[in-house]
Design a protein around this nucleic acid. Structure first.
Lengths: 207, 207
DNA sequence: CAACCTGTTGTATCATCGTTCAACAAGGGA
DNA sequence: TCCCTTGTTGAACGATGATACAACAGGTTG
């Protein structure tokens, strides 16, 4: 008979650094969504990613390095849904509806955001990262508002209105995270539009 | 000579359980404000309160017991400022101005709230506690709105408007916590009034 | 197929966490 | 003055945390 020595299956698979980092970030987001910041642990994240303990340090230098990458990824996902880069012609109504999409309002995502916010306020590196991303978000909201204004005169600066609108959206997220049944989707939608229309005049909500 | 044996000074002072609990809660809030949830540690809180490690367990049974008490205390402080119990005749304008008072908007308070919110979403005991307190807050906001409505017909339920107003206030807190310079006090104030007036009609903002 | 690069493993180490518990002592009552 | 209640201490313990590091092995290159 032939040599019946099967080659043993590989004990692990090697990925490019980029791919493995993405896997670890995803695993970390899953842990945050499931257990909050208490789940953001080398052990749990590596278990979630089915990977050994040393890998996070190898790819991110430290746990905080991973946290920064996770925050960036969460913001990227949010931006991609709510205000994608290529939406130069998308209007405010689309943006409001995108913010209410199930991809952003699901419990896990909200819990992950809440956990991340709790870290941002006390971590200088994350604060800087936040400002960077917030500015992108903010600029896109301002752009959408400016398109809606279309040259008219409004009783507030576009920038201030953008900040306030973002604040309302964040507050609604927060409330919905803690008690999803208190506000219906249409109530949230109307709240957003009522705030915007208070400054911008009537919008076409019909879509 | 007389006996020169001075009685040694007491090594510690005894307090009533109630007083000591209040001291520990205050210390915990100070730790939360300074370091976020990472500072919510038996060691650090006891150091802050200048007390030995065993005391928290003695008075609160567990760390989570203290956390619940801390959350309740934070909510109590907020309610006392924004919507005190005896304010049956206070109107909506007063409430908005109270929400903007420096006692609520300072960095430490905001950071503590952010840390607490991050815990609420993942702790069933805290969720229950949150609902209890939120309902009190909510009822007082509804009452203030109802007084402002004064029997007129408005295009939304008072309850929904209260939820939305609370969400806006929370979002503004959050934004201000992370970047205090982005929104001025008057912009925040105008945002609150514009939202309310979109549903309630003109209010007397002059105060 | 051999050599090398580097992604991956897993143990070892040290720090810190929450909780337990026996001993201590402050301070009021008899 | 003595006693007793109970608030308080602080060491001990096991669990779990993050990180370092030497050994290992996939998989590509020539």
């Amino acid at each position: 008979m032939k040599d019946n020595v099967k080659p043993p299956p590989p004990r692990y698979r090697r990925y490019t650094a980029q791919a493995r980092r993405a896997m670890l970030v995803d695993a970390a987001l899953a842990c945050l969504a499931r257990e909050g910041i208490a789940g953001f642990t080398i052990d749990r994240i590596c278990a979630q990613a089915q990977v050994s303990r040393g890998l996070i340090t190898h790819h991110f230098k430290s746990k905080e390095g991973l946290l920064v990458a996770v925050y960036a990824a969460a913001y990227d996902q949010m931006l991609e849904i709510a205000a994608p880069d290529h939406s130069d012609d998308a209007d405010l109504v689309d943006m409001v509806d995108a913010l209410l999409s199930d991809d952003l309002i699901d419990q896990g995502t909200l819990r992950a955001w809440l956990a991340l916010w709790g870290e941002v306020a006390n971590n200088p590196t994350l604060i800087a990262e936040h400002r960077r991303y917030y500015d992108v978000y903010y600029d896109r909201v301002v752009a959408a508002i400016r398109r809606a204004v279309a040259g008219r005169t409004i009783p507030i600066s576009e920038g201030t209105l953008a900040s306030i609108f973002i604040a309302l959206a964040d507050g609604l997220w927060l409330e919905r995270c803690i008690d999803p049944d208190r506000l219906s989707r249409s109530e949230v939608r109307n709240a957003c539009f009522d705030l915007l229309e208070a400054f911008l005049g009537p919008l076409d909500r019909s879509r």
